[in-house]
Nucleic acid binder design. Structure first.
Length: 278
DNA sequence: GCTTGCGCCTGAATGC
DNA sequence: TGCATTCAGGCGCAAG
């Protein structure tokens, strides 16, 4: 699934292939893809069409295209979403949800098998879309405030992993990066955030940032001219994972078998020796 | 206000 | 063989 580094790669791709182009027409193939655009399909298509893309932005895993009408086209890729640049005559993908005809003869296609992704038009007159104002800065953002984030984490009583996944506290961290950062920092996923020291949290954020930067360096180099995002897969999957998906495998630090727990309707992978519960 | 549980969705993998 | 069930997880809603 697209992690934050992949979303940033997509944004850069949009900068190259969509910026300064006009959206000539819009076709919605699955209304679920624009379920958050409350005025509906027809309004979406007619309001987006005719506008030029003047800037691209990202916050956490949200993208938005700034249009010359000052509206913002907000996009989230969800679990399986891709943005592809294809020529007009290229065969439509099976899971194509929204197709936008661009003025340069190409199409911007939103393809999403599992339809967790979505897009909508924010009509607030430019600037940051208010609909995503609750999304915190991610660790790669220029204005990410480390000290304030540490303080915010320390006042939460939930388990640290739930806090890491809470986009209002810190954005861009998914299940995989959370497990890997917790493993690297030797912290149990269920330990209450308020019991962690500032130093421990700083280490956690440092680890997650390191992983994101590595994936970003990788993703940035495997970029095809006609593909904004090649396959929606994380560059992180190419690297060896220390915890995520490693159930039963020996921990690479202490050889204790990695354990898997049910957590928030998903899985948590952790080393029962290195990441002792509090 | 804060914390917690879960529904949404598809297709691959697994179970009977 | 074939049908049913489980699993994956980002996000936001709603209940506690």
């Amino acid at each position: 699934m697209p992690e934050l580094p992949e979303v940033e790669v997509v944004r850069r791709g949009l900068d190259t292939h969509v910026l300064e182009r006009t959206v000539e027409s819009v076709e919605v193939f699955n209304p679920r893809a624009i379920r958050k655009h409350l005025p509906g399909e027809k309004d979406f298509a007619t309001t987006v069409a005719g506008n030029k893309v003047v800037a691209t932005h990202r916050r956490g895993k949200y993208l938005w295209l700034e249009l010359d009408s000052q509206d913002g086209l907000v996009i989230h890729l969800g679990m399986s979403g891709q943005l592809l640049i294809q020529s007009n005559d290229a065969q439509l993908e099976k899971h194509a949800r929204v197709v936008m005809q661009l003025s340069d003869g190409n199409q911007l296609r939103f393809v999403d098998q599992r339809t967790f992704g979505h897009m909508f038009l924010s009509r607030d007159g430019g600037g940051e879309p208010p609909e995503i104002a609750h999304i915190a800065r991610d660790p790669l953002a220029d204005d990410f405030d480390l000290a304030a984030t540490i303080k915010d984490i320390q006042r939460r009583r939930s388990g640290i992993k739930r806090v890491l996944l809470d986009q209002r506290v810190i954005s861009g961290i998914g299940n995989i990066y959370a497990d890997e950062a917790l493993w690297a920092a030797k912290i149990n996923y269920d330990q209450s955030a308020e019991t962690l020291s500032a130093q421990q949290i700083r280490l956690l954020i440092k680890e997650v940032t390191k992983v994101m930067n590595r994936a970003l360096d990788q993703g940035g180099t495997s970029f095809d001219a006609l593909y904004v995002n090649v396959n929606g897969e994380s560059g992180y999957f190419d690297r060896s994972l220390n915890a995520y998906g490693q159930e039963g495998e020996p921990c690479s630090r202490c050889w204790t078998p990695i354990r898997r727990d049910k957590f928030m309707g998903r899985s948590s992978f952790w080393c029962p020796n290195c990441q002792l519960p509090d």
